[in-house]
Amino acid sequence: MRVCFQMQVKPDRLSEYAEHHAAVWPDMLAAIADAGRRNYSLFLRPDGLLIGYYETDDDDAAQRALEADPRTAAWEEKMADYFVALAGRPDQAAPRLSEVFHLEDQLARHHAGTNRA
């Protein structure tokens, strides 16, 4: 499953936020991977709009694993002040975006439809 989310980084904290993400703590990297998230990317616009993307087999299970993992608490506490207020833990409370197009899915459907005899 592909998951995309958005958050808002405080405009006056953009460079600091980017610096932290240039070298995420190894324990946090391991916690993300152990929770089942992969192909994880963050994209930051100059006005602070942050778009995140990752893939996982079960997003609810990954969320629960990260919430329960003691390795994530310190990182999430450190990052919380960078975001415009959200209810709950920033990474966990970020609104999800609905996927409306995926090239490979449509190509596969198209090829499956044209390859039928």
Rank of each mutant, 00 (worst) to 15 (best):
A22P: 14
I32V: 15
P26L: 01
P46A: 10
R38W: 08
S41N: 13
W25E: 04
F43D: 01
D34A: 13
G36H: 13
G36C: 12
A23H: 15
A35I: 06
A31W: 05
P26Q: 03
L42R: 04
A33G: 10
V24L: 13
D34M: 02
R45D: 04
G36W: 14
W25Y: 08
A30R: 12
R38L: 04
A33L: 11
L44M: 09
V24W: 11
H21Y: 11
A31H: 07
S41T: 14
R37F: 11
F43G: 00
L42W: 12
D34I: 00
A23I: 03
S41L: 12
Y40Q: 10
L29A: 11
P46E: 11
I32S: 06
N39Q: 13
M28W: 11
L50I: 07
L42H: 06
N39I: 02
A31C: 06
G36V: 11
A35N: 09
W25K: 03
W25F: 06
G48N: 03
D27A: 15
D27T: 14
F43Q: 01
A35V: 06
D27P: 12
L44C: 06
Y40V: 07
I32N: 06
D47P: 05
A22E: 15
R38I: 01
L29P: 10
A33H: 14
G48L: 00
L44F: 08
M28D: 10
A30C: 05
R38A: 08
A35M: 09
A22N: 14
V24H: 08
W25T: 00
D27M: 12
R45N: 02
A33P: 08
W25Q: 02
G48T: 03
A30T: 04
A31D: 07
N39R: 13
A23F: 13
P46T: 11
L49P: 00
A35F: 09
R45K: 08
G48W: 04
L44W: 09
D34W: 05
A30W: 09
L29R: 13
A31T: 04
A23Q: 14
P26E: 06
R37H: 10
I32G: 02
G48R: 01
G48M: 02
R38H: 12
D27Q: 15
L50Q: 03
N39H: 15
L50E: 04
D47W: 10
D34R: 09
A35L: 08
V24R: 05
F43E: 01
F43P: 00
M28P: 07
W25R: 03
L49R: 01
A23P: 13
A33D: 14
I32F: 13
R45T: 02
L50Y: 06
A31Y: 04
L50C: 04
S41W: 15
L50D: 01
A31E: 07
N39P: 10
D27F: 12
L50A: 03
A23C: 10
